[in-house]
Amino acid sequence: MIQLLFNTLSLAAAYSLLAIGFVLVLNATGAVNLAHGSFVVVGGFLAAGLGSWLKLPGAVVLPIVLAGMMIIGGLLSLIAYYPLRNRPAVSVFISTLSMSAILETATLLIFGPSPRVGPPILSSGAIQVGDVALNVQSLSTVLLAVVLVAAQYVIFSRTVLGKRLRAVAEDREMARALGMNVNAMIVITFGIAAALAGAAGLMFANTFYITPGDGEAYMIKTYVAATMGGWGSLRGAIVGALFVAAFEVLVPSLPLAMPSLVGALPSLEALFSPIASTIWLYLAFLVVLFFRPQGLFGEAVQQRA
């Protein structure tokens, strides 16, 4: 059970990176980036490609992945967001969806259709803590996610660039009036979001492998996490990620926690199948919205002008 809790935490850590990037773009642009799942795919393949070529662990490859993803994220914003910045938000919906098809097909063409395995962040294997074997990869996933979230926090709260990025996220018009280059800030925000998603891709590629078609599933999970927490709230994104991860790992394992109940009613087991758990996730989402129509932490995003 402790093992499963730990897996939940590690999964939530990786999802947090996705959800935070998603929310950063959302706050800066007021638009949803539906190519976010493809960043995971591209980052994962980048890590897998570099890892098998250089034979180096993920932690060493990571800076290259982050840099590469920043460029890809920035380019994506120039193609799919910049020309449409004054258009209805739903145009960006479609353009980012199209970009995600382009990114994933390009990945397919370059790397082929086979799943790939990424390098472990530090090493594979497990360390024994008492009678629980903790996977080094899961452990380092949590550590790396914490480091990246902390780095993101420091950049946004302590640097001049971060202050500008935040100003743009809080009020684009005001930031423009103050003479900031709003468009450049948005390109950088996309870059940071892509880098965080790419880092998540690096983590996933080792544990779960990565295939060119994986983007949509990651996208939907990110969307759920970010929305459940509250549209535009970074704290909410992290809580939302935890929520999604819990429904993926803990809910299906509930029969283990109460074997007597399941023993008495074997048909109950079907209620905790992975498929059923996904259904519970959406129902839980509706329940959350029923009591808190603005998500767990409330709205924080500026309305798009």
Partner: peptide
């Protein structure tokens, strides 16, 4: 689905 540790534990 990616995380299958619950299934394996069961």
């Amino acid at each position: 689905a990616k995380e299958i540790s619950a299934t394996l534990a069961k």
